[in-house]
């Protein structure tokens, strides 16, 4: 199925959950989903026979600046050989997104990394802790306005 058909299918199934889309003039067409409907959309995309998206390749956080964070999901279907990109946008002050770790088990670690680097909180995640940074680190390093601390546990951090 090509991107336009997938978008039409999603729009008819989840009318208010699908917000906007950019399908033409881009290398990877994407569809924007509301942060509190992403779990239903994900389950539909994995289980429905027309879509069968069995592989979540990448779940990444992005700091879109202007106080918005985004979570981007790259989905592939090995059986049907098509792909789609989903995005959810959340404000920095309330960065809650539903977790899809129960749908694709690969989302477990990738959501933990998005939490560690950007501070996005995935509701329903079984074990949301820091994964790359030490447990007692302050702040979320990949945000654009991140300030590097001067000392950490007695060690000087900047050069």
């Amino acid at each position: 199925m090509i991107a336009q058909e997938l978008y039409d299918l999603l729009k008819t199934t989840f009318s208010d959950g699908i917000l906007e889309a950019k399908l033409d003039g881009v290398i990877d067409p994407w569809v924007s989903v509301a942060p509190d409907r992403i779990l239903d959309v994900a389950r539909f995309l994995r289980d429905d026979e027309r879509t069968q998206f069995d592989l979540l390749t990448l779940l990444s956080g992005v700091d879109m600046t202007k106080g918005t964070l985004a979570a981007v999901y790259h989905l592939y279907s090995m059986k049907r050989n098509h792909k789609i990109v989903l995005k959810t946008f959340v404000p920095e002050t309330h960065p809650h997104v539903q977790s899809v770790a129960s749908i694709w088990r690969t989302a477990d670690w990738q959501e933990r990394e998005a939490f560690d680097m950007y501070g996005m909180i995935f509701d329903g995640h079984p074990d949301l802790r820091r994964i790359l940074m030490p447990d007692d680190w302050d702040g979320h390093p990949l945000r654009k306005d991140y300030q590097v601390p001067e000392f950490y546990n007695g060690m000087k951090v900047p050069y």
Partner: peptide, 11 residues
């Protein structure tokens, strides 16, 4: 042993 469908689900 890692079954094939579990492997795909894990990415």
């Amino acid at each position: 042993v890692l079954p094939g469908d579990v492997a795909v689900n894990f990415g």
